[in-house]
Amino acid sequence: MDYTPREIIASLRAEMVDRVLKSNTMWLCTSCYLCTVRCPAGIKITDFMYELKRLAIEYGLGEHQGAAILAKTFVELVNKYGRIPEMKLMATYGMKTSKTKPGKLLSQAMLGLKLFRRGRLPLGVETIKGVEDLHKIDRWLVSKKMEPNLVERSKGGEK
């Protein structure tokens, strides 16, 4: 971790926003909420970490972070199917990071094989009926400029 949460807060107070947004700190946050329940000042640190992730993405500073790539892939798949096909998530992530982390794809494939042998791999991908509704909301949000569109949308319904 580049900086601890304390250092992050101190850096922001010192207006070192760049340094914070370029760091890997928030991308290592698992949302365990331990800091949130312990913070004596009642700061919702976990929510704050989410905010930093979103800012880093918005300013194009998180592109190389594994957790950012995974989160984007996740969003793409939810937008497409309305649910997450886990194997597809892992496979797509493995492909996207195969250049920077060549071992990853292989180790994911090995795990997939083990799970397959135990009969744990799910079959096809389900698309929910409401996926068009999700797209409708999305178009509305964009038209109202209520939230930027940071992840390319893909058409729903494909298997």
Binding site: A68, A71, F74, V78, D138
Partner: peptide
């Protein structure tokens, strides 16, 4: 019936309002 993905920790990392809407549906 026809529930959608809650968004988990990933969706909130990219979008805030959309993540809440996803859960709220």
């Amino acid at each position: 019936n026809d529930w959608n993905c809650c968004g988990a920790t990933a969706y909130m990392s990219i979008y805030e309002l959309r993540a809440h809407i996803l859960a709220a549906r």
